[in-house]
Amino acid sequence: MARFRLTDRRAHRAMSGIALLALAAGALTACGDERAAPPDSAASVPAAPQAATSTPHLIDNGGHRLAFHVTEGRGPTVVLDAGGGEDSSYWKDLVTELHARTGSEIITYDRAGLGRSEKVAGPWKVENAVSDLRAGLRELGVTEDVILVSHSQAGEIATYFTKENPELVSGSVLVDASLPPLYTDDQIARVVAANQPAVDAAKKDPSAPRNSQLISTAESYVPMHRAYHQVSWPDTVPATVIVSEKTPFDGSPEDARRWRDAASSFVRQGPDRTLVTARGSSHDVPKDRPGLVIEEIEKMVAAAG
Rank of each mutant, 00 (worst) to 15 (best):
R5C: 11
D8V: 09
R10M: 08
H12S: 07
A14S: 13
A14P: 07
M15P: 02
S16W: 08
G17D: 09
G17H: 09
G17Q: 11
A19L: 06
A27H: 13
T29A: 14
A30G: 15
G32D: 10
R35M: 11
A37H: 09
P38M: 02
P38G: 03
D40N: 01
D40T: 01
A43S: 05
P46H: 00
P46G: 00
Q50A: 09
T53I: 11
I59P: 02
D60M: 07
G63A: 01
H64D: 06
A67N: 11
V70I: 09
T77F: 03
V78M: 00
V78I: 04
V79M: 05
G83D: 07
E86K: 15
Y90R: 15
W91M: 02
T96S: 00
T96K: 00
E97R: 00
A100V: 00
A100Q: 02
T102F: 00
S104L: 02
I106P: 00
D110T: 04
G113R: 14
G113M: 14
R116M: 15
S117M: 14
G122H: 14
P123A: 15
P123I: 13
W124F: 12
E127S: 15
N128F: 15
N128D: 15
A129V: 11
V130G: 06
D132I: 12
A135I: 10
G136R: 03
L137W: 05
L137I: 09
L140S: 08
L140F: 06
E156L: 13
I157C: 03
A158W: 08
A158K: 08
T159G: 08
Y160S: 15
F161S: 03
N165I: 12
N165D: 13
E167V: 05
E167Y: 10
E167S: 12
V175H: 05
V175P: 03
D176M: 06
L179G: 04
D185L: 05
D186T: 03
I188K: 11
A189G: 09
V191G: 02
A198H: 07
K203A: 06
K203R: 12
N211T: 08
N211F: 10
S212D: 13
I215M: 04
I215E: 02
I215N: 03
S216V: 12
S216N: 15
A218R: 09
S220T: 14
S220C: 14
V222A: 12
M224D: 15
R226H: 07
A227P: 02
A227C: 05
Y228T: 06
H229M: 05
P234M: 10
T236R: 11
V237D: 02
A239S: 04
I242L: 12
V243Q: 08
F249C: 09
P253Q: 01
P253G: 01
E254S: 03
D261P: 01
D261K: 02
A263W: 01
S265E: 10
Q269A: 06
G270D: 07
R273A: 04
R273I: 06
L275N: 02
V276C: 09
V276L: 12
T277K: 05
T277V: 06
A278T: 06
A278R: 07
L292Y: 01
E298P: 01
K299E: 01
V301M: 01
A304T: 09
